[in-house]
């Protein structure tokens, strides 16, 4: 039995070694419904494969941290990160760069939504009546569903969310935040405005039960980040071709699945504001 097991292990390692032939692998933070993500990024994989003339694979992961770890461990070479996860990941991988972002991403925002039973109506500031309610973020590592809402709450009330609300939860992703606030499991929540707008447009939200009560000031969010060592593995000029391909994604169907109106160049410095806020909130050292 021992021999069988050793052989099995050996085969597995061998399989790992064979896979190390340069297939280009990328991932994305699991920020909304998985089916949608899979459809979207399969399209991106097909597109990149065609443009880069090399095998491209998308690997879905179950948490923000897992996408960062995969990028750090060089098990993926490219990732669609949020503002915070991008900053975290690039800090861990010297030489890695943000190369492209959506046209909308430099001025991204979060929506605070509330169950209509709270009686809170939309306004241009966070109302005092939030005190003592129940509140859900999205994922713990999300920019639009955690970092920026927490920052804005702290700015407005001068205390942390744990003190402000009677209960604070993490729904896991933006789609779940809508579902949980709609069902009343939480009274208030905060999420990515794009996910909200798309869900409303697709008729997936009962707007008689949940509505937007405030929107945050804008901040930079999602971006494509690449590792710095791609050319050594995939050949000279690969990173440049990859950047070009990402920026030239203009198939309306592809863009709609994000949803972004197009992609523009990005740099690490664009996300300096996110890093500052993350330090202030204590999510980064």
């Amino acid at each position: 039995m021992l021999r069988i097991l050793i052989r099995g292990l050996f085969l597995m390692l061998l399989a790992g070694a064979v896979n190390a032939a340069p297939v280009f692998v990328f991932t994305a933070i699991p920020d909304q419904d998985e089916t949608q993500l899979k459809q979207r990024f399969q399209k991106v994989a097909d597109y990149l494969q065609q443009e880069l003339k090399t095998e491209v694979r998308f690997i879905p992961v179950k948490s923000y941290a897992a996408s960062i770890t995969a990028f750090r461990n060089n098990q993926v070479q490219l990732a669609w990160f949020g503002g915070l996860s991008g900053v975290q990941a690039r800090e861990l991988v010297p030489g890695s760069r943000a190369v492209a972002q959506g046209v909308e991403d430099p001025e991204f925002k979060s929506f605070f939504i509330a169950n209509t039973s709270t009686g809170i109506s939309p306004s241009d500031h966070l109302p005092e009546s939030l005190r003592g309610l129940t509140f859900t973020f999205g994922s713990k590592g999300s920019t639009s569903g955690r970092l920026m809402p927490e920052y804005n709450l702290r700015e407005q009330f001068g205390i942390g969310p744990d003190e402000l609300f009677s209960r604070v939860g993490f729904s896991g992703n933006h789609s779940r935040t809508i579902a949980l606030v709609e069902s009343g499991a939480y009274q208030v929540g905060a999420l990515n405005y794009k996910v909200w707008e798309t869900a409303v447009a697709e008729g997936k939200v009962d707007t008689s039960k949940v509505q937007v009560i405030w929107e945050t000031p804008t901040y930079p969010d999602y971006q494509w980040s690449v590792r710095g060592d791609l050319d050594a593995v995939y050949g000279d000029g690969f990173t440049a071709r990859l950047e070009k391909a990402l920026l030239e994604m203009n198939d309306p169907e592809l863009l709609n699945s994000f949803p972004r109106s197009g992609f523009i160049p990005a740099s690490n410095d664009d996300f300096e504001p996110v890093r500052k806020v993350a330090r202030q909130v204590g999510l980064l050292d």
């Binding site: 039995m1 069988i4 097991l5 052989r7 099995g8 292990l9 085969l11 597995m12 390692l13 399989a15 790992g16 070694a17 896979n19 190390a20 692998v25 690997i59 995969a70 750090r72 461990n73 060089n74 098990q75 993926v76």
Partner: peptide
């Protein structure tokens, strides 16, 4: 039982390659 034991290494999926430096 031996069938399951022998077969199991082949059905665990391939996943991502291990990089020992990590």
């Amino acid at each position: 039982l031996p069938l399951f034991l022998l077969g199991s290494p082949f059905f665990m999926g391939s996943g991502m390659p291990i990089i020992w430096g990590n």
